[in-house]
Design a binder for these strands. Sequence first.
DNA 1: GTGAAAGCGCTAACAG
DNA 2: CTGTTAGCGCTTTCAC
Lengths: 388, 388
Amino acid sequence: MRLHNRSDQWNQWNRPGGERTVRNQNGESGRSDRLSAPTVYDVAERSGVSIATVSRVYRNPDSVRAQTRDRVLEAARALGYVPSGNARGLASRTTGVLGLCFPDYADPDAETDAEAEAEADDSAVMLYSDQIIRGMERAARRHGYALLIAASLVGGPESLVAKVAGRVDGFAVLAKTVPTEDLEVISRRLPVVMLAGPREIDHLDHIEVANSDGERELARHLIRDHGLRSLAFVGGDRESPDAQARFRGYQEACREAGLPVADEPDLRAEMMTQAEGVRATDALLDRAAGRERPEAILFANDQMAIGALHALERRGLRVPDDIAVTGFDGIPLSRIVRPSLTTVRQPMRRLGEEAVELLVRRLADPARDPVSLMLPVSVARRASCGCG
Amino acid sequence: MRLHNRSDQWNQWNRPGGERTVRNQNGESGRSDRLSAPTVYDVAERSGVSIATVSRVYRNPDSVRAQTRDRVLEAARALGYVPSGNARGLASRTTGVLGLCFPDYADPDAETDAEAEAEADDSAVMLYSDQIIRGMERAARRHGYALLIAASLVGGPESLVAKVAGRVDGFAVLAKTVPTEDLEVISRRLPVVMLAGPREIDHLDHIEVANSDGERELARHLIRDHGLRSLAFVGGDRESPDAQARFRGYQEACREAGLPVADEPDLRAEMMTQAEGVRATDALLDRAAGRERPEAILFANDQMAIGALHALERRGLRVPDDIAVTGFDGIPLSRIVRPSLTTVRQPMRRLGEEAVELLVRRLADPARDPVSLMLPVSVARRASCGCG
DNA sequence: GTGAAAGCGCTAACAG
DNA sequence: CTGTTAGCGCTTTCAC
């Protein structure tokens, strides 16, 4: 317990703002004043109340007599008082902010010209995180939170992730964004939810998308409804859990239907871009030159499928009459290309919303068991498979 | 100056974490520990250095001997230490975060089903802020900042804007988002940049888009290159500075060309949606029933123009042969519709990037004169005017 | 309903 | 290179 707490001492120790008062007495004001913003002390002094009351006016207005409150608010306005989120957070140990870390798809230093060119292709990728951001922002707002976003950037101990972690009450992480090791440490101190990837750390909440189910249903549709029997699958990076799961769904559908089950995708593309879709298609067709070509090519994402559409057109093959094509993701472009692309829609916006719900829920009850959600997807039957 | 500062006293006063140590001695650990996160004191103790050194390891790693640093880092890792952004911000008076306040386009409580339906139309609006967010996030990251976003929501003294303002080093505001009065107060304490609207407060930095120039050039193109002489303009809300400026550009082009200059748009639509575009088109054509119809309709945004495309098709009018149509904004959909829409592209992504640059610059030099940027736009000549 | 006291966890001179 | 010290501005019991 504290000794020597005579009032005069404490005023000096606890309220070193004596100089602030002097500054105000000097009549300084206006723009250049920005460096030393007014504090509760200034507002308290000007309105003749204690700092506690000023605080109450902002935290819980009803606990202060209306007259007092108005005096405080008026003083605050006159002074240009803006409560410091930092001080508030420090004292209350909450920030009122949720966070999102997502992968750094685009190089921030990229040439602006090249950007413009690449935008068409690029935008599909970006929309993924855009949608999640949108979903999170809305849900967060509904719960009274703001959203702090940062694309990941590897770094020293002072990485962006750490910065985010230190400024939020909890946050979501897109798969492959933050080193598992870091997450291990951070998640011991605040709620983290993993999005759209493997769970990695078992005590975390976690949301994934039904990749495998979606692809299985899509393949089933091709087999059962269109009677196709000779399919080919173009996968993605071996490391991508999404691409893996999609291939697994494809395998399952083949197995179910009594078709030969491939061990591996007929082809893999690392980046899963349109360009790679073109390449893959050409390779596949060249390879099948002698024999009969597949009746359908299933791609692990829309980008590649759209590339395939171009490649096939160039080769004079009609989609879906000569060959069917499908994608995965349900990016906006998929609805627009000709023929429109049959694909599996991912609920990205909802992913963001659910992430917030999970965070809010865990904040309310840190002891609850880790949750793992699997969001359903839906097959969009369009022209490229012979529907619509 | 402080009296009685004997070490034993000060340890007790300055480091009330004595209890924390006890807690650790109790051997508590694991998930439920989340409430009392480890601090610099814990890390310092465990690694046998002072808190200052711990701090240095994170702020300026090179100022600490490698061996010491590793000890600290190891202790931090073991403890699950995450630096508190709040404490850091409070002590250093900076947050390393920039903010963005944008309008609350979509009701966060909207039915999710209805949302899905509305998405097509909705997405155009949303993309506006999405693009800005994207631009800001990238630029912010490049400068080492994270981005805090929040759609505006009116409220008491504790509005979201205030929350954002209290947690960032500076922020951007989309026009019509924050009450000017609030901005007045806030901008006295930290840098604010106004985006895509009138400047409102004259000492603020401010970026707008060359609405008037764009529309003028577009109208010129119609008049000079396509030889059209009878034009109609469908505007937006009387209060919208954007819509106003676009109409002004249209007027200028008419004046230049010696055509009759309208005082008012031929028609106004408040919301500027596709549906209103349909309505406006029908109204315009019905009104002109007897007389000859205009050779072109210029809409204040793409949404309406796209609605017009539908309406015209329904009436059996061919675009651009029977009548030309133009929009404004350059939303993705404008490139996709048939005929593709001639429009004016807004550099929304760049808006976000420039906003960050302005903020960073002002942070570096608070005394510099307020800047007002006007971002150039470009006319996209496509099918709906008879080009492409 | 209001005030006084006691920190929240970190940074930032300033010494050594 | 490392430690000591003095706050940063606010929230929070506890008294009154």
